[in-house]
Design a protein around this nucleic acid. Sequence first.
DNA 1: GTCTATATCAAGATAGAC
DNA 2: GTCTATCTTGATATAGAC
Lengths: 182, 182
Amino acid sequence: MDEVARRSSREDILKAAEAVVIAKGASHLTLEAVAKKAGISKGGLIYSFPSKEALLQAMVERMIAGWQVRHEAEMAHLPEGRTREIKARVMAAASPPLGKKPIAAAILAAVAHDPKLVIPIRDERKRMLARMTASGVNTERAAVIVLAAEGLLLLELLGSSPYEGEMRGRILSELLRMADLC
Amino acid sequence: MDEVARRSSREDILKAAEAVVIAKGASHLTLEAVAKKAGISKGGLIYSFPSKEALLQAMVERMIAGWQVRHEAEMAHLPEGRTREIKARVMAAASPPLGKKPIAAAILAAVAHDPKLVIPIRDERKRMLARMTASGVNTERAAVIVLAAEGLLLLELLGSSPYEGEMRGRILSELLRMADLC
DNA sequence: GTCTATATCAAGATAGAC
DNA sequence: GTCTATCTTGATATAGAC
């Protein structure tokens, strides 16, 4: 199998793993469940990811890469300006519809298995923070706005958000309005 | 054993369970680990909580009760006024030092085991939201502030917060300042 | 590269002694 | 009420066929 095909197989497996976490909870992320969802056998899965930890690490990397892609996409169709960075982060975190939360599922699985697997996530977030601070906005206010957007994402991921429908939309609008005041 | 003593034994076990989640991650919350931490045997544990699911349910209930106690405590030493409710929620969620996060550990363990165990949490949060809306503040702004405080708590729980030390304190101050503008 | 078969181990849960 | 001993299941991982 060539490079491209192998990458696609790994991608399929990682997507399957995210789906399992979303559907059944992080503790049901077993190699067998992932293999079944991806339509391969356990042996085939182990060929691509030699251990469960390797799978989780790859899930975390994929999650970080996915964030960056989403962030770039949001940046691309926002007007230039001081607050573009922060608005892009709000949109990247909270704009997708409620059901589509694979963006962050990996963090649950990783934390459940071994808390140290999230270190790359924290490091990436520190870099993001530095970039935002450098963009010249009020750091504390910007932090609050981004925290709120991420808080919404995490609460939904944990199935604990009380904000639905209209209310959720109004909160997002408020976040974007506040971004302009930073 | 009388009623009081039995309740105390259950409390000890629940505290031990929280400690295990914090220290080793949700997937290492095993009956054996909890029993060891609580200083009893697996058999003894099973007497108090007949199944792992029963233990997790009790952890969730304890977490909700703990929030309410913290919230009441913060309310008690905040001056009366329109923004007291929201400030109390900010303090209750985010004021404790980084290390003390048993307040929310249960949610990780519950979500990891079975996402439907968090339903009581979402329900309680809906009640909180209704109470805050009734207090007369700007609903969207209040939601943003509370989301930011909870976002900070959850990120720290997931080991992914980039905000440390001074910066964390400034964010909290900003949240309380913003609460007055609702 | 993906499969089947299997070894190994740990988890949740039960039974019954004390 | 708490213990020890044990059953059953299911998870990770290995080995080797195809």
